[in-house]
Simulated scan of single mutants.
Amino acid sequence: MGFSPPLGGVTEEVFLPHPPLRIFDSPCKSVCRIDERVGWCIGCKRTRAEIQMWSTASDAQKKAIWQNILNREQQMDA
């Protein structure tokens, strides 16, 4: 919600449209190199298969990929 500038002392309330909600943005960080020792990208932590399927993956599949990424990040911190 926003307000238009006052016109003649009257402030008019204007409802601004919301941008489209993106539930699952791509995890890509533009650092695209697969670390062969672990089998996933050093930037986004996705496997080749996960990278290839991302654009056609369902929301459930994208959620699973994000969980895989979180698990890999935890592995690296351990």
Rank of each mutant, 00 (worst) to 15 (best):
G2D: 15
G2C: 09
F3D: 11
S4L: 15
P5Q: 15
P5G: 15
P5R: 14
P5N: 15
P6G: 05
P6R: 11
P6V: 02
L7W: 06
L7V: 15
L7K: 15
G9A: 09
G9L: 09
V10Y: 13
V10W: 15
T11A: 12
T11F: 14
E12L: 13
E13V: 15
F15Y: 09
F15M: 12
F15S: 12
L16R: 10
H18T: 11
H18C: 09
P19M: 05
P20Y: 13
P20D: 15
L21S: 12
R22K: 15
R22Q: 15
R22T: 02
D25L: 04
P27W: 01
K29H: 09
S30D: 14
S30T: 13
C32S: 04
C32N: 05
I34V: 10
D35Y: 03
D35E: 10
E36P: 03
E36F: 01
R37C: 07
W40F: 08
I42C: 07
I42P: 00
I42L: 10
G43D: 07
G43S: 07
K45E: 00
K45T: 03
R46D: 01
A49F: 01
A49E: 11
A49R: 13
Q52W: 06
M53S: 09
W54E: 03
W54G: 02
S55R: 14
S58K: 03
S58R: 04
S58C: 07
S58A: 04
S58G: 04
D59Y: 02
A60K: 08
K62P: 01
K63A: 06
A64K: 06
A64I: 01
I65W: 00
I65E: 00
W66Y: 12
Q67S: 14
N68P: 01
N68C: 12
I69P: 00
I69C: 03
N71D: 14
N71R: 06
Q74F: 05
Q75K: 13
M76D: 09
M76W: 10
D77Y: 07
D77W: 10
D77R: 12
A78H: 08
